[in-house]
Design a protein around this nucleic acid. Structure first.
Lengths: 248, 248
DNA sequence: CGTGCTTTTGACCGGTCTCAACGCATGTGG
DNA sequence: CCACATGCGTTGAGACCGGTCAAAAGCACG
């Protein structure tokens, strides 16, 4: 199944027709190499992107070269809708691995949603999740120690990757250099290195050639104060949201 | 004019009918005292809030009491839509001054937008601005020094307050204790105090009984790397956005 | 097999934190 | 009207988390 579909299904039940309606966007794919800018600060865009495979980062540079990564984008994520609305991008998005993406125009997107309201609800949900991730990122960088920050990020990524079926027995591929982690977490490369080392010495995680294994999930969650609920995965959701109506 | 209307008009031109359609929500007001929770982490809500007057904060507490303020909410801001979508709030919103608010149900909101598509576009725009503020907050807390952070926040607040007509000659009321500033900026109270003092010694700002005066706007912007554009105020916007269509 | 990126480690530095104390304003109850 | 408590701003002293600088080793790839 396409990662995007897999992800959206975690938010709201989709009819076959919804999935059908999405497929044109899933099949018009484009491969882009690593380290390619997809969205550039200051540029104007009329399209949104869907990532089918590979990783990207959203970041901003300060004049003296300091970089802050806003968030990581993985398979199933989309971005650029904000730039459609706002006309001009206030940050850059770049691939950090080879990736497969497709683009959607604002028109197509509006048409799609009008014809399939459930998809609209699913995208809304997805946007709300993304905002929750941003908020939690602020908490991490503002108030958590380096140790806690790294732990939290590793758990967040595991949860998100799990939504698109890329986690196997608490193990997943993490194609991030320590320098990328540093810029995401507001730390220096050197300190990220030491912190990762400490997490391994403490037997909380294991890292082996870009593969991360969460060795002690419970303790790691405790340390990071990681609340899975903030990602609002609906898997175990019972009740209904007022917005379900949107999707009939 | 109501702050919310004033703010939305910065994003998109509203017809009289749009403003008319909004007024029922503007007039059903409720006064709430200072330090009142409007939204509590873990609770379920079916309504969104509009702030007509006063200040509120969105924050999250860590188990040991550390607090991170996600953002400040001022007149014209709304919140809680995310909680409508997600069913459960992952953070708390509380007033920090006496405030005047009103609530909107998801149903009313959907009806309103369906009848006045332009309002839908305006709210989208507003949501996009809010997300941009969150992103910039991550940059601040992750990569800016204390000095730069404080400078940036003061400029952000001035710009936002200006959108609702609460700034007079680079001067505005800032009803925030240093402890609130500290929790927003990821700093200690003591350091916020020293930093504010330094900004005043450097003749960049003046503070006098909760009134902030930006004494040297240009230099402050330089220090903070403040780009007004990230707030996407459309005042001086020429071109059109694909989403203008939404509003006919 | 050289070039460049990444990881790792050591030594030292410094921005920010913690702890502690004090002043000042405001409020409250006796 | 005073006694006291409470909240906020301010300042000093010292500690520490994480930064910077530097260097070497591992590794990937042309």
């Amino acid at each position: 199944m396409f990662p995007l579909v897999s992800k959206l299904k975690h938010f709201i039940a989709l009819a076959d027709s919804d999935v059908q309606a999405l497929s044109p966007f899933m099949t018009a794919r484009r491969s882009v190499p690593s380290n390619t800018d997809l969205l550039q600060e200051g540029q104007t865009y009329g399209v949104a992107f869907i990532i089918h495979d590979g990783w990207a980062v959203r970041y901003r540079l300060l004049p003296d070269g300091r970089r802050q990564i806003i968030n990581f984008l993985i398979a199933g994520d989309s971005f650029g809708l904000g730039s459609i609305i706002l006309n001009i991008a206030d940050h850059t998005v770049a691939t950090i691995t080879p990736a497969v993406v497709s683009t959607v125009t604002a028109e197509d997107l509006l048409t799609l949603i009008r014809a399939n309201p459930k998809l609209g609800a699913a995208f809304l949900w997805s946007a709300a999740q993304e905002e929750a991730i941003l908020r939690e990122h602020i908490v991490s960088v503002g108030r958590r120690t380096a140790y806690e920050r790294v732990a939290h990020l590793l758990l967040e990524l595991m949860t998100r990757l799990d939504m698109v079926g890329r986690v196997d027995d608490r193990q997943y591929e993490l194609p991030l250099s320590q320098s990328l982690l540093a810029d995401a977490l507001g730390l220096s490369v050197v300190h990220v290195n030491r912190t990762l080392r400490r997490l391994q010495n403490d037997r909380l995680i294991r890292i082996d050639s870009r593969q991360i294994h969460i060795a002690d999930l419970e303790q790691l969650k405790e340390i990071a104060d990681f609340k899975r609920s903030f990602l609002h995965v609906a898997k175990d959701r019972r009740g209904s949201s007022p917005l379900d109506r949107l999707g009939r």
